[in-house]
């Protein structure tokens, strides 16, 4: 079967776009990094792609809050195109800054018009780069199905604390199978808010959520940074790449099946 085309969106300050391409290629996709200016110029169209990836970085220097201005681009220039892409059921993933963009653009959780969740400054007030482990509870998410073991990969963010506006929102996300990834200890049990297993103080240890249809995943950690082990002892030191590769493959396979 043909390699599905993935659009990897780039705004000023996006920096893990090449990293995402490495993972996408490994997982069988045909990624293309596209600057938002080209979408604005109608030089490229979202609808020509089978997957949408919003990668990590510091879009617009995190001015006015991480992801805020990239989200504004989406809302100002491509609100309809983006909504049509999401509604079509094609797989969408936002990693780190991309997750922040999806949340601040209202695409995630995506149930109401007002913003009901956000990614706030880490509980300890600092940017942190460290490896984390996540488990995938039963959910609607097409990206996290049948992951072989814990998903382990680095975080690198200062604004990753998942916050909701009310208990009701959290209950809806939990009961609706929307919690796609949860920060966990090495034993696979949720971190229970304990640092550093839960590295940023996220409510209910949430590391990633999906929309109600399950095709859109946003997560703070970087599964694109654990797809190749190059040192002999890498897996002993850190973790298997299997779950990260499986996550990317899930997205690619889902795109193929559309």
């Amino acid at each position: 079967m043909r390699r599905p085309k993935a659009i990897v969106l780039h705004a000023a300050g996006t920096n893990r776009d090449p990293d995402a391409c490495v993972a996408l290629e490994l997982a069988g996709a045909d990624p293309e990094i596209v600057h938002v200016n080209r979408l604005r110029a109608r030089d490229r169209r979202l609808s020509d792609y089978a997957m949408l990836v919003i990668p990590g970085g510091f879009s617009y220097a995190d001015a006015l809050g991480a992801g805020r201005l990239f989200a504004l681009d989406l809302a100002s220039y491509f609100a309809d195109e983006a909504a049509a892409f999401v509604d079509s059921g094609k797989p969408v993933i936002g990693v780190c800054n991309g997750f922040q963009v999806l949340v601040k653009a209202g695409i995630l959780p995506g149930d109401r018009r007002e913003r009901e969740a956000t990614l706030a400054h880490n509980e300890n007030g600092r940017f942190e780069c460290r490896w984390t482990a996540m488990s995938a509870p039963a959910s609607n998410c097409v990206w996290t199905r049948n992951l072989p073991g814990l998903l382990s990969c680095p975080i690198a963010h200062g604004e990753g604390r998942f916050v909701v506006d009310s208990e009701t929102t959290m209950e809806r996300l939990v009961s609706g199978g929307r919690i796609a990834l949860v920060y966990s200890g090495a034993d696979g049990r949720p971190a229970g808010g304990a640092y550093p297993a839960n590295p940023n103080g996220s409510a209910a240890d949430v590391a990633g959520i999906c929309n109600s249809a399950g095709n859109v995943l946003g997560l703070m950690p970087h599964p694109e940074n654990n797809v190749v082990v190059r040192d002999r002892d890498g897996e002993r030191r850190r973790a298997s790449t299997a779950a990260c590769i499986a996550l990317w493959k899930n997205g690619v396979d889902y795109a193929k099946g559309m």
Partner: peptide, 14 residues
């Protein structure tokens, strides 16, 4: 050191 992103670019082996 944890304040610095040492993973970006996916090239860090050690």
């Amino acid at each position: 050191v944890r304040l610095y992103d040492h993973e970006v670019q996916g090239a860090t082996v050690l």
